[in-house]
Computed example of a mutant assay.
Amino acid sequence: MTGKTRRFTIRARLAVAIAVLLAVIGALMLGVVYLFMRYVPLYSLTPMQGLEAPSSVPQATTHPSAVISNTDPAFAGPVISSTDDVFRLLLTASITAFVVLAVVGAIAGWVIAGRMLRPLQAINRVAKSAASGDLTQRVSGDGPHDELRDLAETLDDMLSRLERSVGEHQRFAANASHELRTPIATTQTLLDVALADPDLDLPALRRTAERIREINQRNRETIESLLTLADAEGGQLRQERVRLDALVHDALRAEESAAEALGLTVEAELVPATLTGDPALLRQAVANLVQNAVRHNVRDGRIRITVDRTSTDVCLIVENSGAALSEELVATLTEPFVRGHGRVAGPGRGHGLGLALARSVSEAHHARLVLQARDKGGLITEVRFPADDDGLA
């Protein structure tokens, strides 16, 4: 067979299960009643002598017996004259009650199962939409807070995360293709212009070569940043003890000349603190945060970096002056290739991967990265890492 045999739906199986359960319980109760009526009471019935008996109530005999009869001609029900008649009537009533109970149980089970499984129908509909590529649908369950409601909320949360992730990856792919295609096209143009010039001299050729070298250098840096970002998101981490304050000190020393060129005032309060993680990724993330604070600053601006720790976490705060940023823009700064001043890159400008890499490294180390726009312009970046249990370094 090429196709699977279709089984009963869950609703049908629940209805049958409820009906069978009620029928079994009813059969057990009726069986207990039947056995009790047969073996526990002592019957002594006087057979009837026709239907001509007087209409008065029969008088009781001296021994424990009774005459069960009805001589009313209008009475059309069964006439009991012996114990066999009692048991036959009891058996008939039991079978009738059993059938009625099974039918009522099946109908009630079908209705109850339908109401109980209604959220599953909505979940199935949303899941089919997601499978077809539509990640905007939500279950939005509003019933009682039970297991099905928990399943619906979990599915909605998963779809929300998946929608954001797919959107980020689509934007990443589009921006990455642009970032990598632009320098290639620029290099091609420079080479075409140089080769088309019949009077190209050595100084012009040298200038062209220098520009191509600069473009290739930026292209190499972009590719290296993308590879580092992929490593951070891949989850393959080395676990070593790392001094966060030492990483910040090294990053500040690397950006010292750039900060002096812009006349930046740098303040650092670095409390000795350790955490466990991948040294290379943490070093790159810290360097990117410090570099971002320098490159996206204003002349004669300020940078304030703080490393602090509590009993539960290690906190790194990088605050820098700069242009005013909207909350909408700040919310997108951790996406790849997003810059605070558009996507046009120039000398000393980044690739738009620094904060994206810092976010990925933070998530890989179970840390939380929060961005906040400063009231007077600029950005505040806060990263909270889980602290080591053995105290300060």
Results as ranks from 00 to 15, higher is better:
I10Y: 02
A12Q: 14
A12I: 08
R13M: 07
I18K: 02
I18P: 00
V20M: 08
I25E: 03
A27L: 10
L28E: 06
V32T: 12
V33A: 15
L35R: 03
Y39M: 00
Y43A: 09
L45Y: 13
M48W: 04
Q49G: 13
S56V: 03
V57H: 08
A60D: 00
T62F: 04
P64S: 11
A66S: 11
I68G: 06
N70F: 05
T71S: 10
T71I: 03
P73I: 08
A76D: 06
P78K: 07
S81Q: 14
F87L: 11
I95H: 01
T96H: 12
V99Y: 07
V103T: 08
A106Q: 00
I107L: 13
G109K: 08
G109N: 09
M116W: 15
I123F: 09
D134H: 15
T136E: 09
T136A: 09
T136C: 03
V139A: 07
P144I: 12
D150R: 15
R161E: 07
L162K: 01
G167M: 05
H169I: 03
Q170N: 15
A173W: 02
A173C: 08
A174F: 08
N175M: 13
N175T: 09
H178K: 12
E179Y: 05
L180Q: 05
R181V: 13
A185C: 01
T189I: 01
V193M: 07
V193E: 12
A194E: 05
D201V: 06
L202F: 10
R207K: 14
R207H: 15
N216M: 09
N219S: 12
L229W: 10
R238M: 02
Q239A: 06
V242T: 03
D245H: 08
A246C: 01
A246H: 04
L247S: 03
L252K: 13
S257H: 12
S257D: 15
A258R: 13
A261I: 12
G263L: 07
L264M: 10
T274M: 03
T276Y: 02
D278L: 00
A280R: 07
L282T: 04
N288C: 02
L289G: 07
L289Q: 11
L289W: 07
V290Q: 05
N292Y: 10
N292T: 14
N292D: 14
V294K: 06
R295Q: 14
R299Y: 04
D300Q: 15
R302P: 00
D308T: 04
R309A: 06
V314T: 08
C315K: 12
L316P: 08
V318F: 03
A323T: 08
E327S: 05
T332N: 12
T334P: 03
G342R: 14
G346M: 06
R349I: 10
R349C: 01
L355N: 06
L355R: 09
L357N: 11
A358H: 10
S360V: 01
V361N: 04
S362V: 05
H365K: 02
H366I: 05
Q372T: 15
R374W: 00
R374K: 06
D375P: 01
K376R: 15
K376I: 11
K376F: 12
G377P: 13
G378Y: 04
R384G: 06
F385T: 03
A387D: 00
D388E: 02
D389G: 09
L392K: 05
